[in-house]
Simulated assay, not measured.
Amino acid sequence: MTTADATAPLAVEALLEWRDWIEDLADRFSSLAPPQPAGPSSSVDPWHWERACTRLVTVVADRTRAESGWYGHCEQVLGWFLAYNGIDEERAREIAESAVGGRFGSWTAPDVVVVDTVSSRFARTVDGTR
């Protein structure tokens, strides 16, 4: 950041990149949303939650290039996804933290086994919420 003339284009570029990311997530949330349960006694197949988590973790790791602290944004995105699907925001944050907490590292893209573990935990926790 130097002069206003030099800084303004950088700020605009960053805001456009952020908007593109938010719009991308909105599209993903819509396409990954589990089907609504058929009746009051039915529930969403946990597979839908697990699949969504796997895809969101993967896209966040890719988008952030798994740089320092990327997993914090991953938790945030998973929480947003749950809130999008009608889960209380505080509970959504708790579920995301519980699923991800300490399982990913900075500067390291997660391997398949870890993503599977996180996604499975995520699905089991969500299933107990609804």
Rank of each mutant, 00 (worst) to 15 (best):
P40T: 12
Y71L: 02
L82V: 07
A61N: 14
T7M: 00
I22P: 02
D45S: 10
P35M: 06
E94T: 07
V115D: 15
D116V: 00
D20C: 11
D127W: 08
I95S: 07
R124N: 05
E94M: 05
S41Y: 09
E89S: 05
E50I: 12
L10T: 15
R51A: 09
A11N: 01
D111I: 00
V118L: 04
R63T: 15
A6D: 13
D111A: 02
E50L: 11
T64E: 08
G86R: 11
V44Y: 00
D24R: 12
S98K: 14
Y71C: 02
G102S: 11
N85P: 03
V57H: 13
A33I: 11
W18N: 11
V100F: 15
P34E: 14
S98I: 01
R121F: 06
W21Q: 06
Y84N: 07
R51D: 15
E13I: 04
T58Y: 01
T3I: 09
T64F: 08
E13G: 03
H48F: 10
Q76L: 11
L78R: 15
I22A: 13
P35D: 02
R130V: 13
R121H: 14
S43N: 08
E50F: 05
S119T: 02
E50T: 13
V114S: 09
V118R: 04
E89P: 04
D116K: 05
D45T: 10
R91V: 13
Q76G: 09
I87Y: 06
L56E: 14
V118G: 08
E75S: 06
A6Y: 10
